[in-house]
Design a protein around this nucleic acid. Structure first.
Length: 390
DNA sequence: TTCGTAACGGTTGAT
DNA sequence: TGATCAACCGTTACG
């Protein structure tokens, strides 16, 4: 493995702006390829170019090409998956509420009995029912305290109260959209609600943290979706596996790239990936330290592709015909590739259209207008993959 | 030669 | 605030 060198720290062996693979391509270990590259991989594949040729042309390992194409074929999304995070907890406010109810009705109930009742009552299913130990922990840490508080409140009801006491379970009755949603959805959150839909591998229940349960989230981070939706196509929502296919429904897409382009970010897709959740709840803009490339580019792309006519300009910044088969080393400079800064890798800044400014964070050297024409010709014409495309 | 995939080292974000 | 965990990433090597 040939290591890149940080120009700001020439002595360093640890690359700061990317490494160079065996093909001479630049990548950042652990980070997804820029969307422009991912897009090109898919486009080239749809032009009939073999993955091995794509690999060589884009200087991306064939394993990566294979992965991206397989992912695209499976999900219709070019975007990388959701990186990081933890599995959301199954002890949702609703579940905790039910556990508390069971415990109040039968103080001697066992944890395993509660577990069975949660299943029997349809509060949970076998996929998201809390473990006995989790229930025990809830009983010990939450219900126990709450029960004590309940007794205290009960006592206070018979005493003159100078101030209205806070309901002991106010944390559960807080009008949180999360809670409301959880209460309205009888099926486990990770299970597709639409018949015939296919769940992604990473279909966790909705995120619930301690603060969720305590109702704090409703104030501090109200309604923030578990993951920003990728913004490439409706099916691109599926990119990270955080979104169920069933939520998207069958769009009838063929998976072709032209379809992706036609759809762009329609009404199904928030105008920005970070400002609004599917439910329409406004969400504070999160502090982002180093947004994953896919998300960052998706965000930027969603803005950049908003053509005046409403049509996206997917093809305008990526073209099979506009890229030199084997760029010179200077063209694949790791520093240019990732814009010499983390934010450059995040991209989005350079995706200005047909203005001569960089279009891709990966330095694809893609002339936008020519690329678009080339693609148009390729699609409207014979669809032949000419040498120019390679 | 091509392609699929496991292993690997790395990053990320929630807890 | 730092550690931990579990997801993802792309590259490499192997079959």
């Amino acid at each position: 493995m040939v290591r890149g060198v940080d120009p700001h720290a020439p002595g360093r062996t640890e690359p700061a702006f990317g490494e160079v693979n065996q093909l001479g391509g630049v990548f950042v270990n652990g980070r997804p390829l820029p969307n422009a590259i991912r897009l090109r991989i898919v486009e080239l594949a749809q032009l009939g170019i073999r993955p091995c040729d794509i690999s060589r042309q884009l200087r991306v390992s064939h394993g990566c090409v294979s992965k991206i194409l397989a992912r695209y074929n499976e999900t219709g999304s070019i975007l990388p998956g959701a990186i990081g995070g933890s599995k959301p907890r199954v002890t949702t406010p609703t579940v905790v509420k039910h556990i508390r109810t069971y415990k109040q009705r039968d103080p001697g109930i066992f944890a395993w009995e509660i577990r069975d009742r949660l299943l029997a009552d349809g509060v949970c299913d076998k996929y998201n029912v809390p473990s006995v130990s989790s229930i025990s922990r809830i009983l010990r840490n939450k219900i126990g305290n709450l029960a004590q508080q309940a007794h205290y409140d009960s006592y206070k009801q018979h005493q003159p109260a100078p101030q209205p006491a806070l309901p002991y379970n106010h944390i559960y009755s807080y009008p949180s959209p999360i809670t409301a949603a959880a209460a309205k959805v009888p099926t486990p959150p990770g299970v597709p609600a639409i018949p015939g839909s296919v769940a992604m591998p990473r279909t966790w229940p909705s995120s619930h943290s301690v603060t969720d349960i305590l109702g704090i989230r409703s104030i501090t981070d109200q309604g923030r979706p578990a993951r920003p939706a990728p913004l490439f196509s409706p099916r691109a929502f599926l990119g990270g596996g955080w979104v169920r296919l069933g939520e998207i429904g069958s769009s009838g897409l063929t998976g072709s790239f032209s379809d992706l382009g036609k759809l762009g970010h329609s009404a199904q897709v928030p105008s920005t990936g970070f400002s609004e959740e599917p439910g329409g709840n406004p969400r504070p803009v999160r502090k982002r330290r180093n947004l994953p490339a896919g998300e960052g580019e998706a965000e930027a792309y969603s803005q950049a592709q908003a053509a005046p006519n409403g049509l996206p300009t997917v093809s305008s910044f990526v073209s099979a015909s506009s890229m030199a088969p084997y760029p010179t080393p200077a063209q694949v400079s790791p520093y240019m590739t990732y814009s010499a800064a983390p934010s450059g890798y995040v991209a989005g800044h350079g995706w200005q259209h047909a203005s001569g400014t960089p279009l891709s964070p990966h330095n694809c050297d893609i002339p936008a207008s020519l690329a678009f024409k080339g693609m148009q010709a390729a699609r409207e014409g014979s669809h032949s993959v000419t040498a120019s495309a390679l």
